[in-house]
Amino acid sequence: MEDPTLKPDVRQMTPEELAARKKRNLWLGLALAGFVVLVMITTIIRLATGTGISGRM
């Protein structure tokens, strides 16, 4: 028999909360993908130009 005191303190998410979580996860995914793209861009530019800067120093 399950001990009720061991049952985790939980509540149901409302449809609004679920929708908000879904939207948040989407944004997090997009942010992660964006970060990967930015790292890729900097890597390509560095490989192509050396430092990504030009002109007299």
């Binding site: 303190d9 939980v10 998410m13 679920l18 908000a20 939207k23 948040r24 944004w27």
Partner: peptide, 19 residues
């Protein structure tokens, strides 16, 4: 429906504007 631990301090769902 999905369970959520009751530790959440949220009073309302956050919007993009909140972040």
């Amino acid at each position: 429906m999905t369970d959520l631990t009751a530790q959440s301090q949220q009073k309302r769902p956050a919007t993009a504007a909140d972040y």
